[in-house]
Design a protein around this nucleic acid. Structure first.
Length: 943
RNA sequence: GCGGGGGUGCCCGAGCUGGCCAAAGGGGACAGGCUUAGGACCUGUUGGCGUAGGCCUACCAGGGUUCGAAUCCCUGCCCCCGCACCA
């Protein structure tokens, strides 16, 4: 732990992560800046470690790397949090005490939203430093800085000038008590509940209308009656000169959507029951009937009944038919005569799909909880596969999905229908305790992502960049296509006011689309008065316009040059769930504001974090704080674990047990360093000198080291951190273990050279992942300067010889074969005879590889004609054998098996615990085993 | 519903441009070494069968292409994620 702090201080003092323009190999990467409303947990740890690892890797490769960080403090959540803290809301207090571990003294100050973000951004910064991130902190800013606000104002004005901003209205979740729109985090109940658009159909009753809300306007042709709940209160309201009858409970919601809606009087639902209303489509008369399943809060509290297609309607009708008392009470007659009317034909269903569904689900009455499932199932099937039935005028044979739209449009245009919004589920309750409603926000500002031309430009931008992983590209395409106009301003929260309509605050996703460019100039702007940073200034800096500025021209040129040096952004990293908004906006805005040469060049998308297999969630307390993890295991362990347990775009799972396993492996690495340095003496690591061993195993080790360099480098280039760690650590470790076993105690100069080289390479390969440990070892074993600035291990492709690796495989396979035979025979032989394949077998093999499609006949023919081997029986047996399983893949080339095995003789003897006799000719072969030898697979005889 | 991604050995997870895949790596379990019995560490085993290095059964289920499929195609079942004004 002290080691980690020590190196963090040294880095800071040496300013090695401060990036200034120089040289032409630059790399600029950013990761989504945090919204500091809570403590940093291990999920965040992964998010910020990935870019750090990549930044460190690229720095070692000689790039001038810029990795900056800032704080996204714009938005509403902290306002709500502060309010709840002030109110001493027990749930909020508990979360902040127990989950975010805020000390009581600090928590007291959390009634100020600004303080919350200040507290947590400090905390974040502290932990980011403790994690060893190679961030250039000079560029730090927060999104409420006056200079940044100037930048945001410039950006949004730019869009407005391009005609990409418009005004309109928009439905939102709204708390009438707080008089504010509410987000999911503001809710006590009803998180994630969607807002649905419903069609309302007007059924005329005398001089007023009963308005029924529905998702399925197309079923209007199958209406048999209307339902209302006689236990609830109903009222008459005036809308646009019309009289509507709705439930009292729906009034609150609807009155926020129909601005001129006025309460007129209460209506007794009991008196309505039994009267007839007129169908707006067909003009038929339908009776109003009582039903208790009708939810007065949902829609309008009035439902029209389509018993053929709605299970609830059907069962309610059945219930009513059985209930003589109720019929009598409301003087209902001819109830029996009401029959379901089919309107939709769906394959697999008959005249009355609702009846069939009721039977399938075995539903007894309208109080059955399974009724929802039944309704849902039928709804989905009919929507997906249903067609309007033959007898329906104008719409017959039309798919339901189409007919639905057309019918609603048609009725609306005739004034017989309207639309409203409602929550998909009730209730939705604000943290203040009151029920939320859907409110139509008027005069809302929108960014016009629906603009066709803009979409095309953005698609072009998308096609010009690299996306990791590639699969999510389809996702981007989909979102660009699908994205509609975005409400880009809010009435509450921290942020930048809209320049032309300052009572609106620019919404947080809209103010973080091109801010990466801001990092490139942030250090300078900090020292300039915000008022001097007008639009002309940004036009000059970012777009190269030749403007007269309030600030010194030389300085402005310098700033502009720095922007041009760093931009475009090479990599943007962000989470998977932000593809649909932030990342897509990022592309939209860049394409609208910057020329193609400044468009982003790459995007990396992250997965989520799991904790012991369960989804992490701060609000549920299911998190491990990053600071606790560092405390318990050390930053390098946390880093290594996070990087090795999953690729960035996959979900990772924090399992304490495996974290501890990672810790042990890291300790092993440190100890291994000591072990090696003891073996080779305390000489300097050989960074530039590459050994050239002459022994097989030495060559093999060099091949493996370089193979790992190659693979780890390739993996890191593609942000495959897990793969890189596998190669650079686990697999290399396996190779090294093997090498150590192979050399036994023969430590000669060659071995020392190889080990010195190995250690030097290995520390550097691991440095991006475990920078503190790597620095410590680098220093200890005599590396030059910081390992963070050391050159990335150079790949010597020439060492990666297939032949050398194949040779070692022969040794290993031979041992394995001997062991297997020993096991089967259950004997402990004194001597093991090993026979290598004779020359003629190699020649036949080469011949076989030479042919396009080797078969027995052709091979035999050629072998005989060339007189390769006299014994035809042996020849044909061998050919059969190699045709069966040897001829696969690429021919690795002929190897000198005798030399290889002789070279490894001592080792093999130790492994199999018997004397090894290697035969080039089968001069001693009592059981005739030698004939089994084939290339790469010597014959074996135990005695 | 729309869109995206998946189903691999006890668990996690690689492989999935077809052959060297009974399938990397980790975890767990078992056995042995070490040690004061423990912890840590090291070694080995971890689908079945087998008296000569082999055979059989396996990568959700079913079908197909191929000399050959975990890998390609079709069908079905199941799972996960996003769908907005929320960072």
């Amino acid at each position: 732990m002290d080691i980690e702090r020590k190196w963090q201080k040294k880095w800071e003092k040496a300013e090695i992560f401060q990036a200034n323009p120089h040289g032409d190999k630059k790399l600029f990467l950013t990761v989504a800046y945090p919204y500091p409303s809570g403590a940093m947990h291990i999920g965040h740890g992964r998010t910020y470690t990935v870019p750090d690892v990549y930044a460190r890797f690229k720095r070692m490769q000689g790039y001038n790397v810029l990795f900056p960080m800032a704080w996204h403090v714009t938005g509403a959540p902290v306002i709500g949090i502060a309010r709840r803290i002030q109110r001493r809301d027990p749930w909020t207090l508990k979360v902040y005490q127990k989950v975010h571990k805020v000390p009581p003294k600090e928590l007291e100050k959390f009634t100020d939203p600004e303080y919350i973000v200040e507290y947590f951004s400090k905390e974040y910064k502290r932990i980011m430093k403790a994690m060893g991130y190679s961030i250039d902190w000079r560029r730090e800013f927060k999104t409420t800085d006056p200079q940044y606000q100037k930048f945001i104002a410039w950006q949004i004005k730019k869009l407005k000038k391009r005609g990409l901003i418009r005004k309109g209205e928009h439905p939102v979740k709204y708390c009438p008590e707080c008089e504010n729109p509410v987000g999911d985090h503001d809710l006590l109940e009803g998180e994630g509940v969607a807002i649905n658009q419903l069609t309302i159909l007007k059924f005329k009753l005398r001089d007023s209308y009963l308005v029924a809300a529905t998702f399925r306007p197309e079923t209007i042709f199958g209406v048999t009656n209307l339902w209302l709940n006689p236990k609830e209160k109903y009222i008459e309201v005036k809308v646009d000169g019309e009289k509507w009858i709705i439930s009292e409970k729906s009034y609150k919601n609807l009155s926020q959507q129909k601005k001129d809606m006025k309460f007129v009087e209460e209506v007794n639902p009991e008196e309505l029951v039994g009267s007839n209303v007129k169908n707006p489509m067909t003009g038929e008369e339908h009776p109003i009937l009582p039903a208790y399943f009708v939810d007065p809060e949902y829609g309008t509290g009035i439902v029209f009944s389509v018993p053929a297609h709605a299970p609830a309607d059907y069962i309610a009708l059945q219930d009513l038919k059985k209930d003589r008392k109720l019929q009598k009470k409301y003087k209902l007659e001819n109830i029996e005569r009401i029959k379901p009317v089919n309107v939709i034909t769906t394959e697999g269903y008959g005249e009355c799909p609702a009846c069939e569904t009721i039977e399938k689900f075995k539903i007894k009455n309208q109080k059955d909880p399974r009724l929802d499932d039944a309704t849902n199932e039928l709804y989905k099937i009919e929507h997906a596969k249903g067609k309007m039935s033959q007898h329906i005028p104008e719409y017959s044979d039309k798919p339901v999905a189409e007919a639905r739209e057309e019918i609603a449009e048609h009725l609306k245009s005739e004034g017989k229908a309207d639309e409203i919004f409602d929550f998909a589920e009730h209730p939705v309750i604000c943290r203040c305790g009151s029920r939320c409603i859907v409110k139509i926000m008027e005069n809302q500002w929108f960014i016009k992502y629906s603009d066709k031309e803009w979409k095309n430009l953005t698609l072009k931008c998308l096609n010009s960049l690299k996306i990791i992983p590639e699969e999510v590209k389809a996702n981007f395409e989909y979102y660009i296509e699908w994205l509609d106009d975005w409400a880009c301003a809010r009435r509450i929260g921290l942020g930048t006011p809209l320049p032309w309509d300052p009572k609106w605050i620019i919404e947080p996703l809209s103010d973080s689309t091109i801010y990466m460019s801001y990092y490139t100039i942030a250090p300078h702007l900090k020292r300039l008065p915000a008022n001097d940073l007008n639009d002309k200034f940004f036009d000059k800096i970012f777009l190269g316009q030749d403007n007269k500025l309030k600030i010194d021209e030389k300085l402005a040129n310098k700033i502009s040059n720095e922007f041009n040096y760093w931009y475009p952004l090479d990599w943007r990293l962000s989470a998977k769930d932000l593809i649909g908004n932030h990342l897509t906006f990022h592309l939209f805005h860049h394409s609208a504001i910057f020329p193609p040469s400044k468009w982003p060049k790459g995007i990396v998308v992250f997965g989520m974090g799991l904790l012991e297999g369960k989804k992490m969630s701060s609000s549920k307390g299911n998190v491990v704080l990053l600071s606790d993890a560092i405390e318990a295991h050390g930053a390098d362990v946390v880093r290594l674990f996070l990087m090795s347990s999953a690729e960035p775009w996959q979900d990772f799972d924090w399992r304490e047990k495996e974290v501890i396993g990672t810790k042990r492996r890291l300790e092993w690495f440190r100890e291994f360093g000591d072990k090696i340095s003891n073996m080779i003496g305390s000489k300097r690591l050989s960074v530039s000198k590459t050994p050239e061993p002459s022994s097989f195993i030495g060559k093999w080790m060099m091949a493996r080291i370089n193979l790992r360099i190659r693979e780890a480098t390739k993996a890191l280039e593609g942000f495959q951190t897990r793969r890189a760690v596998q190669e650079a650590f686990f697999l290399l470790r396996k190779d090294v273990d093997h090498y150590m076993k192979r050399i036994g105690d023969h430590v000669d100069e060659e071995v020392k050279d190889v080990l010195r080289y190995l250690l030097s390479v290995w520390i550097r390969l691991m440095a991006p992942f475990i920078p503190h440990t790597a620095e410590e070892m680098w220093e200890k074993y005599g590396g030059d300067g910081f390992v963070s600035e050391a050159p990335w291990p150079k790949l010597h492709e020439e060492f990666i010889s297939l032949e050398v690796q194949r040779a070692e495989e022969i040794v290993q396979d031979t041992i394995k074969d001997i062991m297997e035979i020993k096991k089967i025979l259950n004997i402990a032989p004194e001597k093991v005879h090993v026979y290598v394949a004779p020359d003629w077998k190699w020649r036949v093999l080469e011949m076989a590889y030479d042919m396009d499609k080797p078969d027995i006949g052709a091979l035999m023919g050629r072998a005989i004609s060339e007189g390769i081997h006299d014994d035809k029986k042996e020849l044909v047996d061998f050919i059969k054998r190699i045709l069966k399983d040897t001829l696969r893949g690429e021919y690795p080339g002929r190897v000198d098996e005798y030399r290889i095995l002789s070279d490894a003789k001592d080792y093999i003897e130790k492994e199999v615990n018997a004397e090894i006799i290697i035969h080039e000719d089968a001069e001693y072969d009592p059981e005739g085993k030698a004939k089994n030898a084939i290339p790469y697979k010597p014959a074996i005889y135990l005695e």
